[in-house]
């Protein structure tokens, strides 16, 4: 039994506000669901996600390099423009049909060039947007607050607006989240109801890719071919994963993502070093230990898996939580079973 006395609980409370009834008969028109009141709290735009190298933090060249490149590009453009007008003039001089044809082809070329550039810009913008979403989700989940996460859910809904595959999950999320959920709970619900299905699919992509590289490396006759295959497959994987999470990277964007991925391999929750992976791979199976080719295949496969997992971590609009971090273990054990099937 307790020995606490009444007095222990009877000291004055600091900031005390008396209960009030605001309106007896008609609910206050100013009263609004907590969500919309908190919608303006967009003060969470932080660009440094815990542990991840931000997009902007890429090797900063001195001012001279961009100036030089910019100047060069302008010169080339001007030269091209002159050439183009010249070309057009000459074609029209020889025959008007040829002139029209050349003009049309020129217009198409310029048009697609512009479109490609725009696509790249949009894709980079989307990647940045994902970064900021993840930062916001992270701070919401930590802050122990209430009411702001519904606005975040709306933002995420807008982000995935065109995705037919996510529409049912987003719709269901709208039904499950209510005004009593804390911010951290809303983020957890988004995580389980919307993103976990994507994780499963991404996981499958990673698995396929790491199998492909493992087998290709093991079977390919030359080292140069290996490198080419692995590079191509990894790039494809990064694009697949990024597209799945809605990042939609272009050609240039995937390269950027890929470089960032490599820079993040160490911090993105995939902590075991390459050496460790090698030992795992070699020690894991007798076949691997005997055949260096097989061993290399497995190392490449695991590297691909790590790149894929890093891509998942970087492209996910809500960071992985402690209990759903993707792990190499499953991929590793799947890979160990590959050689027997191949031979």
């Amino acid at each position: 039994m307790t020995n606490t006395s009444y007095q222990d609980m009877g000291r004055p409370a600091s900031a005390w506000q008396a209960p009030v009834e605001l309106d007896l008969h008609h609910p206050d028109p100013a009263a609004s669901p907590a969500a919309s009141a908190a919608a303006g709290s967009a003060g969470h735009q932080r660009n440094d996600t815990a542990g991840l190298v931000a997009l902007a933090a890429w090797p900063q060249w001195s001012w001279a390099v961009p100036a030089f490149l910019g100047g060069l590009a302008t010169l080339v453009l001007v030269a091209l423009a002159f050439d183009a007008t010249d070309l057009m003039g000459r074609s029209f001089a020889s025959s008007s049909v040829l002139g029209v044809l050349v003009t049309v082809v020129l217009a198409m070329t310029v048009g697609t060039a512009i479109k490609l550039a725009l696509d790249e810009m949009i894709s980079i913008r989307r990647l940045r947007h994902i970064d900021s979403l993840r930062a916001e989700a992270d701070s919401l989940a930590r802050a122990n607050g209430h009411g702001s996460a519904l606005a975040f859910a709306d933002t995420l809904g807008d982000f995935y607006a065109g995705r037919a595959d996510l529409a049912p999950a987003l719709h269901a999320l709208g039904h499950t989240v209510n005004d009593a959920h804390s911010d951290a709970e809303v983020i957890a619900l988004i995580d389980r109801q919307v993103l976990s299905a994507l994780d499963q699919r991404a996981y499958r992509c990673v698995l396929m890719a790491s199998r492909d590289t493992a087998i290709a490396t093991a079977l390919s006759p030359s080292a140069a071919l290996d490198v080419a295959i692995v590079l191509w497959r990894n790039l494809k994987l990064v694009r697949e994963v990024a597209t799945l999470y809605g990042a939609r990277p272009g050609q240039f964007g995937s390269w950027r993502l890929m470089r960032r991925m490599l820079a993040n391999l160490a911090v993105a929750g995939v902590t075991d070093s390459v050496g460790h992976v090698a030992i795992d791979a070699l020690g894991g199976s007798l076949a691997a230990a005997i055949s260096t080719r097989l061993g290399q295949g497995m190392i490449n496969g695991l590297l691909t898996a790590r790149i894929g997992i890093a891509a998942m971590t970087l492209c996910r609009p809500v960071g992985f939580s402690a209990d759903n971090k993707p792990n190499l273990r499953r991929i590793r054990s799947e890979l160990m079973s590959v050689p027997k099937e191949v031979l």
Partner: peptide
């Protein structure tokens, strides 16, 4: 009940 935010 529903949680709502009001000005008082």
């Amino acid at each position: 009940t529903e949680t709502v935010t009001t000005e008082h």
